[in-house]
Write a protein that binds this DNA or RNA. Structure first.
Lengths: 205, 205
DNA sequence: GTCTATATCCAGATAGAC
DNA sequence: GTCTATCTGGATATAGAC
């Protein structure tokens, strides 16, 4: 019982410390101290510090996929789906998405871990761009296509519209990771941005 | 003669290594090796590793201000200024700006240094957001105001227009720092983005 | 101003008692 | 499975010769 717990605790505390200070700046003793045991205990669960690093990457993959599924579901299979396809609903949905991205512990930790450890594993750079930029464009393009299909927005190039819609949000998530105390300011900016977007593209036939 | 040279070389090589691997991952011996002398030589020029870090931050401030002045000048006091205030000119100007940001050595190094050392100095987080996000909005808002004044673009909210105009570019600079091999792809995206922006906002009276 | 030699410290990792 | 004790390597930094 306790063995599995310790193994997971090592992973979690390592993730927290690596995300904040970076892999090389964190010692095994520091991690062990937070877990509440001694450094050599690590080696009963992982072959070394590097194995801890690899385990975090693997966990981040699972965590990301699960989160994306949830977000997709919460948008498309929700009693509020029709509401979400209005200006007001979009403002609410995107601000909720933004807030959970910057406020929930694990999404924030994985994002900071991946962005800060790119020199240890160049693959992480590609993962970051794919997850936090390009796949966001895909997600929002679907929404915009539906808004066009419903005659709510003008039938412009949905790919570019998605880029213009999602880019500020993606940028502000990174900015809010650096300055979390400005969160409310970013909420307001998102609201203005979406309001403006709908005003420019709204179908008035 | 040689003393000043060595001092500057230490700074430059430290910046390169810190930007790529992070402060804690780089040893003084590594820096000294690149400079072409032994580690203790550092202490004749700087009081220690931390002093090197501080000197880089100070230099980055000077470098940034000089660069911003040059960019401002190259836009507003240029024989091509009128041309830059057209769709085609904007595409050329912004792509040139993007290309120099991601391709020139020192802007890239300072950006990566500042973004990666935020845990060593929390002030760097604010500096990053101010320099690479918020001041960009200000710069492009001036351009958009001029485009509106010249009756080239519709008189919409210039602040939000600047946010929508500049955010993708700022985001793609970060993305291109992570995947420089995709540079040409980002050029094309910028072209499409600006073309679309002008089509949506162009005054057709 | 740069070197070699060295002091001091702390990291990751292993051995062996319990 | 966790501990204490320990090995080994490499880090920052200093001392003192040239």
């Amino acid at each position: 019982m306790k063995k599995e717990n310790t193994k997971k605790q090592f992973l979690i505390e390592a993730l927290k410390l690596f995300a904040e200070f970076g892999y090389d700046s964190v010692s095994i003793s520091q991690i062990a101290e937070r877990v509440g045991c001694s450094a050599p205990a690590l080696y009963k669960h992982y072959s070394g510090k590097q194995a801890l690093f690899d385990a975090i990457i693997e966990l981040s993959e699972l965590s990301y996929e699960e989160r994306m599924k949830e977000i997709h579901h919460s948008f498309w299979n929700n009693e509020k789906s029709d509401y979400f396809l209005t200006e007001k609903g979009q403002i609410e949905f995107v601000i909720k998405l933004f807030n959970s991205a910057v406020s929930e512990e694990y999404p924030r930790l994985f994002r900071n871990f991946i962005i800060s450890e790119k020199s240890k594993n160049p693959e992480l750079s590609k993962i970051y761009n794919e997850r936090y930029i390009f796949s966001q464009y895909g997600f929002f393009e679907e929404i915009i296509k539906e808004l066009i299909a419903r005659d709510i927005l003008n039938d412009e190039n949905s790919e570019i519209m998605a880029i213009e819609y999602a880019s500020p949000v993606a940028l502000w998530i990174e900015a809010c990771d650096r300055e979390p105390e400005r969160k409310e300011e970013f909420f307001k900016m998102i609201e203005n941005h979406i309001h403006h977007f709908f005003r420019v593209y709204r179908k008035n036939s």
